[in-house]
């Protein structure tokens, strides 16, 4: 559905995107991940025909962004970094305007407006002026205008920025439910969001592609070291942390044991091993053999945050988001 080849975008002095290639299949949700200034917004602007590429090609639904921009625009719904709202318009008035721009009219337009009002939870601000909406509602109206014409491809630049936790969950659910019919690319700084929402992740850093893979593969790939979380209970609460640790360390295949947590009479350890070296049965037997209870034993998957740090060379992850960056046209 989306095909990007050797895409480069240079501004006057900076190269914002440097020879990026990736492709997205129909119906997939792809997370676009990278620290501030990585080039996420720039790439999205090229895909939406807002900016022309300096080199390379980008195709959406088989249409080149340079050669057939109108065909591309027809098939794309775009939520820019800051929702493109007119403060003096009412919500429905605005959706009607955008709908017409995207080529809808008549009863169909009315139907779509009703649909997105419900879908994006903005029915209660139907007649309010957009300039008077709170940040979260502005974001939702922004999302509503992106899906108003039921586009094949949705490009969402930080769709959950500024929402409250309940809203974030609802928006993620909404985005997930849109997948299937729609192909979705969303950029985000929130790593768990990618883990929860996306099937595929594209990580870029300083304009270059750092990794592109399915979320599951990526987690596995960067897990050369496997870790297991072990929760042990001693019953009477007299469990010695050091004793348990040294016991665990003697199990063949264990590289390191880190004490993670200790509450009440339970101790939690992270047991790190080389991939495929440790037999979990050995571990369980050792615990039980020592007279302790084995409450839990599970694989700890590395969080995307760690993957991210590893791939982008241990820079600070871009979790602290600067305020909406300047719009340039």
């Amino acid at each position: 559905m989306i095909e990007v080849k050797q895409l480069t975008k240079r501004y006057a002095r900076t190269t914002a995107v440097d020879q990026i290639s990736f492709s997205v299949e129909k119906g997939q949700i792809v997370g676009f991940l990278g620290p501030n200034g990585a080039g996420k917004t720039t790439t999205m602007r090229v895909l939406t025909c807002f900016l022309p590429p300096s080199a390379g090609t980008a195709k959406v639904a088989g249409f080149d962004v340079l050669e057939q921009p109108r065909e591309v625009k027809r098939r794309i719904g775009y939520l820019p970094e800051s929702p493109p709202l007119y403060p003096e318009m009412g919500t429905v008035e605005y959706l009607r305007f955008v709908g017409k721009l995207k080529g809808l009219s008549g009863a169909e337009l009315d139907k779509r407006i009703d649909y997105v009002l419900g879908r994006c939870f903005i029915s209660d601000v139907k007649t309010k002026l957009l300039g008077k909406l709170s940040k979260g509602y502005r974001q939702r109206v922004g999302l509503a205008q992106a899906i108003i014409h039921n586009p094949d491809v949705l490009i969402l630049d930080e769709p959950t920025a500024g929402l409250d936790p309940k809203q974030i969950n609802e928006t993620r659910d909404l985005i997930r439910s849109l997948a299937g019919d729609h192909t979705i690319i969303l950029s985000t700084h929130i790593l768990p969001e990618v883990e929860q929402t996306c099937e595929q992740v594209i990580i870029i850093n300083k304009g270059r592609l750092a990794a592109t893979d399915s979320v599951r593969n990526l987690q596995a790939r960067t897990r050369g070291v496997e870790s297991l979380l072990v929760e042990i209970a001693g019953g009477d609460g007299s469990l010695e942390q050091d004793l348990v640790r040294s016991t665990l360390e003697q199990i063949p295949g264990v590289a390191q044991v880190v004490s993670k947590d200790a509450k009440d009479s339970r101790l939690i350890f992270e047991v790190q091993t080389q991939k495929g070296q440790l037999n979990r049965g050995d571990l369980a037997r050792a615990v039980v053999g020592a007279g302790w209870d084995l409450n839990e034993l599970r694989a700890a998957s590395m969080s995307l945050e760690e993957i991210f740090l590893e791939l982008t060379g241990n820079e600070t992850p871009a979790e602290v988001k600067e305020p909406a960056s300047e719009i340039t046209a």
């Binding site: 602007r45 955008v98 721009l101 080529g103």
Partner: peptide, 16 residues
């Protein structure tokens, strides 16, 4: 439109 970013809506809609 340029200041508020709404130009991005116009420029990415299928209008000339």
């Amino acid at each position: 439109e340029k200041r508020s970013g709404t130009i991005e809506l116009l420029a990415t809609s299928p209008v000339r």
